[in-house]
Amino acid sequence: MDTFLTFALTGVVLFSLGLQEVLARPGVLRMLIAVNVMGSGTLLFFVSLAHRHADGPDPVPHALALTGIVVTLAATAAGLALARGLHRLRAEGSGGRVEGGRVEGGRSQGAGYERGRSESGRDEQGRADR
């Protein structure tokens, strides 16, 4: 096995492992970890392709993978911020349930930012749910 095949295969394995775990929906943070494993697998596969050339690697997959790392980071950071935001609102105890990523309850239309509404959309929501 040469370097290309070894890492291309590893990429496939990592992608499938991550996919399996995301689909099993073990909770938000674990799903984000799994997505990152999937991402590493994808990029590993992509970059291993650049290694099939005798006189030095093909720089294009390297550059694309760099972009891929940044994009995955951005999405992960946004996901973690959302997870924490959701957690904080739940910790405030405004009722409703979140299970396996499915949100139930909650009736707000984001009233707080619609013109002429009271600014206490969240409180109203809390009361309605109780």
Binding site: T42, L49, P61, L89, R90, S94, S108
Partner: peptide, 30 residues
């Protein structure tokens, strides 16, 4: 944007689903 539990929860599910989708797309591209 509204920052309510319902919207943040929906955004989170949307994000997780879409992340998997984009990686599948990217693997195909590779």
């Amino acid at each position: 944007i509204p920052g309510t539990r319902a919207t943040i929860g929906a955004a989170l599910v949307y994000l997780l689903a879409t992340l998997v989708g984009s990686l599948a797309f990217l693997f195909g591209v590779a």
